[in-house]
Design a protein around this nucleic acid. Sequence first.
DNA 1: CCACTATGATAAGAGGTGCTTATATGAAAA
DNA 2: TTTTCATATAAGCACCTCTTATCATAGTGG
Lengths: 295, 295
Amino acid sequence: MKTKLDYYRIFYETARFSSFSSAAQHLYISQSAISQCIHQLETDLGLRLFARTRRGVSLTTEGALLFEKISTAMEAISQGETIMERLRHLESGALSIAAGDTVTSHYLMPYLEKFHANHPEIRIEMANSYSANMVRLVKEGKADLAFINLPMEDEALTIEPCLEIHDVFVAGKNFRAKKKYTETEIAELPLILLEKNSSSRHYLDTVFSEKGAELSPQIEIAAHDLLLRFAAIHLGVACVVEEFSKESLANGDVQKLCLASPLPPRHIGCAYIKDRPLSLAAKAFLELIRGGEQE
Amino acid sequence: MKTKLDYYRIFYETARFSSFSSAAQHLYISQSAISQCIHQLETDLGLRLFARTRRGVSLTTEGALLFEKISTAMEAISQGETIMERLRHLESGALSIAAGDTVTSHYLMPYLEKFHANHPEIRIEMANSYSANMVRLVKEGKADLAFINLPMEDEALTIEPCLEIHDVFVAGKNFRAKKKYTETEIAELPLILLEKNSSSRHYLDTVFSEKGAELSPQIEIAAHDLLLRFAAIHLGVACVVEEFSKESLANGDVQKLCLASPLPPRHIGCAYIKDRPLSLAAKAFLELIRGGEQE
DNA sequence: CCACTATGATAAGAGGTGCTTATATGAAAA
DNA sequence: TTTTCATATAAGCACCTCTTATCATAGTGG
């Protein structure tokens, strides 16, 4: 049971070549080595494995039985090595990312596209959820990376900010905006906000209540894009992320309201388990995000 | 592709134990050895295989993929070793014997029975045929041993006599036998002989023609046992092998005719390929035949 | 028929590799 | 803190595997 495994590889090749000398050539070792190796194997196993004939060797009944098993073993190992090779060159593998819809479509999309272009054979798995849930996915190893709203603290995670975002208030184009709004004035507008369970909303409420203003929106919805759509048709004033609203702002569907003191910027961060190496695919994707030169 | 295979075994055990130190204990080597080995593997493959955590290690995504393959490899090898072990102790394998019906039933049977009793897990395959055909089976590796009528010469075969047999003439119990018969007298009797294509018949013809007597049997048949049956019901005088006719002779169904000069003894021989080791099972069976002490 | 080639077996020796022990490092537990 | 339990690293040695060289045998070819 403690026979050198390397002997089996030699046995394998020798059996395939039916010759000590040609196997030796193929393995770049001397014929003598093969001879000794097989001899050793036969001694260890207590069985004759090869019948020595004038022209090379041939497997005995017992040797043939061993060869069956060793073949599958060697093939499995070879497969494993091939897989490792491919993994190393990112020609295979999987990338599992957890991120909210908004972040995915307005931020990650181009990176995903590029990553897929660079590594078309890597399967990309996206998981959509709330921040807390995404963190859980990462901790359970079900996702490599999670893109979440900061701030977020977790002992077990490395969290690095990757995008600065700005919360702005927008209204439809016919809305008559004042030059500047104070927090209190904003609070009096007919607001369209995200639902209370979202971290963005939670953040917003916190900021405003610190300024002594309570937000009581007329409309609460779950999707960022709908905020823009609702604002565009003058259902109210929405608080959106400027970076995720470029299109609507650019084509004039909505206008941005000026605040006396703009809301402090927030960050989108990328979270992954601290003491566990990222999969190569995840590492590569992270490099892409960071703006590093991709291989 | 030229990574030391032994490393994979260490990798395998380490992965199973999720710990360098416990794997080390289990493998009876030092923890340091494991550490170095895994490090080497990771370097060779260019991938991280284990995530080092506070309590032991765990496979990375890539490591898990490798482990799948290495597992099947290690299991295959383990199976192979088990098979070899069983073969060595004759707890498994096959024994393929070529022999004629008569030889099988009157000579080999008790050996086969004993062999099977000793090694119940070895499958016994019997091939029935004529001598020439049996020799072919052995040469083609389709039979380990062939039991044939001697003399028989073949460069590629080792042929060892294993049973001396005597051709005798027998008649039914009512047959009035003379004291002694000469060859010529025998030739004049109503003979029952084997068919011309059998080697026994060929031998008989040769012997008699050397004595100047031609045999022209009244009845020719293919099976030895039928010779006895025909002789018993007084259809004529049969030439049979004494050793294979003990029963009929003993219970008086037939009587043996005395010859002035008995026919020279022949031999049954066991033939096997000269320059190819016998399978262990065949070797063991041969030992049994030779009367050697079985393990 | 004898040299020549190709097979594997054997002997002896060198080199290298994979162990060992010892120590470092780091994090968690006490 | 100190202790404990994990892995990492360093240095050196012993063994084991491969090499070279030679032998042995048999088939091949001129």
